[in-house]
C-alpha cells in the first residue's frame, strides 16, 4: 500500500484515496460545437503511459478534496502532489529514468531483481 500526501491533510494510506484517472482533461466549454470525433476523444480516450503520468486523486475517506499528482507508473513513486488550481508542473522537473526499451527504470519496477 502506497503512501499519498494529500495537499490538505498530509500523508495518509492509499486506502483513504480513490484514483480519478488522467489529470488536466478539461471538460469542453461548448460540447455541442464539438465534432463526434472530438467529443469522443474527450469522453473515452485517455493516456496510459509507462513512466511519468499526471493523474487525479480524491481523498475520499478524508477531506474529500480532489487534487493532482505526478506518478511514475512503473515504480508507483508519487513525485509531486498539487492542488487542482495550481499549474501543471513541467515534465523536466522530474528525472525521467525510463531507459530500457519497454520503459522500465533499472530499479524499482519489480521486473528485475538482479543487478547486471
Amino acid at each position: 500500500m502506497i503512501l499519498i500526501k494529500c495537499p490538505y491533510c498530509g500523508e495518509r494510506d492509499q486506502s483513504e484515496f480513490a484514483n480519478g484517472g488522467e489529470a488536466h482533461i478539461i471538460r469542453p466549454k461548448n460540447p455541442e460545437s464539438l465534432s463526434d470525433k472530438d467529443w469522443g476523444e474527450y469522453v473515452f480516450y485517455r493516456n496510459n503511459p509507462k513512466g511519468i503520468f499526471y493523474e487525479r486523486w480524491v481523498h475520499t475517506h478524508g477531506c474529500k478534496k480532489w487534487f493532482n499528482a505526478v506518478r511514475n507508473t512503473s515504480t508507483d513513486q508519487i513525485l509531486k502532489v498539487y492542488k487542482v488550481n495550481e499549474k501543471r508542473p513541467d515534465l523536466s522537473e522530474f528525472q525521467n529514468t525510463l531507459k530500457s526499451p519497454s520503459g522500465e527504470p533499472s530499479v524499482g519496477s519489480g521486473n528485475f531483481a538482479v543487478k547486471k
Binding site: S106, V107, G108, S109, F112, A113, V114, K115
Partner: peptide, 18 residues
C-alpha cells in the same frame, strides 16, 4: 522492497546491492 541483488563470487550467493 524492489532492491537489486548482485552475485558475490566469494560467498557464492546473491547479496543486496542497490
Amino acid at each position: 522492497s524492489k532492491g537489486l541483488v548482485k552475485w558475490d563470487k566469494n560467498i557464492l550467493s546473491f547479496k543486496p546491492d542497490t
